Amino acid sequence: MQCCDCSDRNRRRWTSFLKSLAGATGDLSSLTAPSWILAPFSLTEFPSYWGEPKEMFAAIADGKTPEERQLLVTRWFLSTLSGQFTRREKETGSEKKPFNPFLGEQFLGSWDGGDLVLNVEQVSHHPPITAYSLENKKKGISLEGNCAQKTSFSARMISVKQVGHGLLRVKLADGSTETYLITLPKLKIEGLWTGKPYVELTETSYIQGSHGLTSTIKYSGAGWVSGTSHTHTTTITSGPGGPTLYTLTGTWTGETKFHKPSKDGKEGHVFLDASVDGMREKVTVRPIEEQGEHESRRAWKAVAEGILSGDYDAASQAKSALENAERQRRRDEQAAGKTFELRLFDKVPNDPEYKRLAHALKFKVRLGPWSALSFGRTSR
């Protein structure tokens, strides 16, 4: 989110919006925001960040041992964070709010001519939940998951709890499948009162492998007096509370290095440099005119064009038209006694694979009321 320019009018407009946030109660995830603080794309595009470091994603399947694959999964995960949480700030000067997806909205894309394929669907509107599937069939590796946000406003920041999880699966040479439970970090959006919001990650997320190894990622940032933005300390252990095999320290926007204790003499060596140009490749999608009516960029085309051209009145009108049409569809379904049917994903209640890996962490992973649901691989 950002102020459009430095004029007094826009500063007053921004301050007025923040005051409206301060007066709001409950979860702000479904907040209807004015178009001048919106990014020109939907939240359904966010799972594409998982696939952008496509070479690192594919390389996971090349690991020869569980320990090596745990390191490769951890490196890939850390490499996705900068694209997810700092790119928009670098490109536009501040963070902006993506569109709230409508129920059934889809985002379909690929890399390398279809070697790596992404399918995304908004599977719930209240609460808002996005399901995604990322698969490289040639390498035998896939990621499936769901994500929602619970958002609240305090005196100086917006706090966002990412609710959901991912399950990354790797087919091994012996025919078995190795699975990794990936939990999501919390984040806060600061810089609100200066009109230049930015994202900082907080608290802890985990990567739990079915072989028993655990990656624990603790995030920290710049405080009022000291600290460095976007920092993390990651430990890879033989299990929750078990002996430490590796410690990784650095920033998820720049260099991460091996640190004590370290095996194999790797102390001080660079584990990942997330700032390297060309490490991430944006997803490829079909031309808008070839997309289906439920695909995100086609559905939001008029809104995005208004934002990009600075015609916020046109953007607001197009946004209202789309949202009103979706509300009418829900009313028509209710009147006909129908419920919305998912087009790409199937609900899998009480997912035993998730439960087994979450139990391996030996404490309750707080993933919200949808943690017992996962969304099956695209089947239609």
Rank of each mutant, 00 (worst) to 15 (best):
E281H: 11
K54C: 10
K138R: 14
D351F: 01
E105L: 03
T74Q: 05
S309L: 13
S205T: 14
K260I: 08
Q2W: 00
V365Q: 14
P261K: 09
K257D: 00
A61T: 13
E290K: 13
M56Y: 08
F77T: 07
F77K: 08
W76M: 09
I141H: 09
I141L: 06
H125W: 07
V285C: 12
R297C: 03
A358G: 15
L81S: 03
K362D: 11
A59C: 06
T339Q: 12
S220R: 14
S152A: 12
G83R: 06
P261M: 13
F345P: 10
Y132W: 10
Y206G: 02
E95N: 03
N10R: 11
L201E: 11
T339E: 14
T234C: 14
T214V: 14
L192H: 05
E95K: 01
K263H: 08
G242K: 11
S79F: 05
G63D: 11
G242A: 15
P66T: 06
A61Y: 12
F102W: 01
R286I: 02
W300S: 06
S379W: 05
P240K: 10
T179L: 02
R286C: 05
H165N: 11
Y219E: 04
R298T: 05
S320R: 09
K301L: 02
G242N: 08
L187T: 10
K138S: 14
A59Y: 04
P261T: 10
T202A: 11
R327C: 00
G306Y: 10
L72P: 08
G265Y: 10
I158G: 03
D311I: 07
P240N: 10
N324A: 09
K90F: 01
I236G: 08
Q291R: 12
R377S: 13
R331C: 00
K347C: 08
S142Q: 12
L71A: 10
K54I: 04
A22G: 15
K19G: 14
L118S: 06
K188Q: 13
L72H: 07
F85M: 01
Y198E: 00
P185Y: 04
E68H: 07
E200P: 00
R75G: 08
G51R: 08
Y180P: 07
N100T: 09
V170L: 09
V170T: 13
A24W: 00
T44E: 01
A299H: 03
R331I: 01
F102N: 00
T253I: 13
R380E: 05
S124V: 04
P53D: 06
S229E: 15
V276K: 15
N100R: 04
K137G: 02
R13C: 05
V170M: 09
S374G: 12
T256C: 11
G223K: 04
E105V: 03
Q208D: 00
F258V: 06
S152R: 13
E293K: 08
G241V: 06
A173N: 10
L248W: 05
L78C: 14
T130Y: 02
M279K: 12
Q291G: 07
R11E: 12
G242F: 05
G254R: 04
S159P: 02
T378F: 04
Q162L: 15
L43H: 05
A335C: 01
V160I: 15
E52W: 09
D264R: 11
K150M: 07
